[in-house]
Amino acid sequence: MHIDKIPVRYAKALLLAAKEGGRLDIVHNEMVSLAELLGNNPELVYLLKDPALKGESKKKILNDLMGKNITVETDNLLNLVIIKRRESHLPQIISVFKYLYKKDKGIREVTLKTPFKPDKEMFAFFSEMIGKKLKSEIEITNVVDDSLIGGFTLKVDDLLYDASIKTQLGKLKEKLIQRI
């Protein structure tokens, strides 16, 4: 999900480098934890964007936060991003990387929207059924949206299966208005 070309370029490069080094999964895990770190600490994002702060200091802060045992690819990415003054793009680079990683591994992102939180059994049933249908590994997220009234919507990549009462009612309304 991106408009800019910059994050795509960096993310693609990281993916290729990690693949070459055979550390794709480790790099992905590091990126996920970095994304969490940035997501949970908005101050950190502001700090990265701060033009007054020197690159070295930014690097030092990131290194301290990430620990010393990071892969050479992640370390290089952080270095490169800071040298090239693209640190403000870091959150987008990570999100594009995650997207490319899933595409590479054939993992399909599934969003299940329900009017209430499904219990464990129901959730497991959905996951199994969808996994079987799609014949691929899936990553399922559940969103609760009570405006659906009933039913569910299922979004797999670009496809949406809408079986919600809200949509049905909407379509019924449209039809009734049209005919009269």
């Binding site: 999900m1 991106h2 408009i3 496809l159 949406l160 299966y161 809408d162 949509t167 019924l172 005919r179």
Partner: peptide, 26 residues
Amino acid sequence: VSDILKKQLQNYKWKAEYEEVGTVLQ
């Protein structure tokens, strides 16, 4: 009016179908 509505509701069939969707970036 009620009769017309009743007839329409009786004939109303709805089947969920796959739709292609995207996300607004900007």
